[in-house]
Simulated assay, not measured.
Amino acid sequence: MILGIGTDLANIDRIAGTLERFGDRFRNRVFTETEQRKADRRADTAGTYAKRWAAKEACSKALGTGLRMGIAWRDMAVHNIDTGQPMMVVTGWAIERLAGMTPPGHEAVIHVSLTDDHPWAQAFVVIEARPLAGTAQAVT
């Protein structure tokens, strides 16, 4: 079952300008060390940061809060599995919110899709509740 859906569109040039203007202050406030290492290794550093910015915005929307109610930028982080597929890791208030949304007998799975086409970066986040193994589900 779908618990939440979020999307966001970020302007790469705006993120590049923010990085230029605020540098580490911006990076450290919004992005985890893992996200910073990933972005700083890429040729399109600003585009990588913009996609992650959009993913955090989309995740906050899928959580049903937007960036309010105690959620922090660094409570949501985009990591990549070995194949390169992005995944969202949540901590802090975001994980508390996720647990509160997840019905008993289910686990939450956060799906992330990222894309960019200069000057735009876009993210979609879908939060799914999957029945836990061995949990009987009623069929209606």
Rank of each mutant, 00 (worst) to 15 (best):
R68A: 15
A77P: 00
W93F: 09
K51M: 13
W93Y: 11
A50V: 06
P103V: 06
G105F: 11
H79Y: 05
Q85P: 01
N80S: 13
W73N: 06
P103D: 09
N80V: 04
I71Q: 03
L98Q: 07
Q85E: 15
Q85F: 00
I71E: 03
W53M: 02
A99Y: 05
I71A: 03
V78M: 03
L67P: 00
E57C: 02
G105Y: 11
S60I: 03
M87C: 09
M101E: 06
C59H: 02
Q85T: 12
A72T: 11
G64V: 05
R97V: 12
A62N: 10
L98N: 08
A94P: 07
K61N: 06
A50R: 05
T65A: 01
G84M: 12
A94M: 04
A50S: 14
A94G: 04
A72D: 13
A50P: 10
I95F: 01
P104Q: 10
P103Y: 05
R68S: 15
G84T: 12
D82L: 12
I95L: 11
T83K: 14
V90A: 02
A72M: 14
A77R: 00
K51R: 14
R74N: 14
W93T: 15
T65N: 08
W73A: 06
Q85Y: 00
M88D: 00
E96M: 10
A62K: 05
V90P: 01
V90D: 02
R97M: 10
W73L: 07
V78I: 13
W73H: 11
H106F: 11
M69V: 02
I71T: 07
P86S: 09
I71Y: 03
P103I: 05
A94T: 04
G100I: 08
E57A: 04
C59M: 10
Q85C: 02
N80F: 02
L63E: 07
G64W: 03
I81Y: 03
A54W: 00
L98M: 08
A94V: 04
V90Y: 01
Q85M: 10
R52N: 11
G70H: 13
M87V: 12
L67S: 03
G100E: 11
V90W: 00
E96C: 08
T91C: 06
R97S: 05
P103G: 08
T65I: 00
R68M: 11
T102R: 04
M88N: 01
G64C: 06
P103A: 04
G66W: 13
M69G: 11
M69C: 09
A62H: 10
G70N: 14
G70F: 08
M76N: 02
H106L: 06
M87P: 00
M88V: 14
T83I: 15
L98C: 08
I81Q: 13
A50I: 04
L98A: 09
R74E: 09
P104F: 05
A72V: 01
I81E: 15
D75E: 13
V78G: 01
A72P: 01
M76C: 08
H106D: 08
A55Q: 01
P86G: 07
W73I: 06
M69Y: 13
W53S: 01
H106E: 07
R68P: 06
H79N: 06
I81N: 14
L63T: 06
M101C: 07
A54Y: 02
V78R: 00
R52C: 07
P104K: 07
G64H: 04
E57I: 00
R68C: 14
I95C: 11
C59R: 02
C59W: 01
N80W: 03
G66Q: 14
M69L: 13
T102Y: 07
M87Q: 12
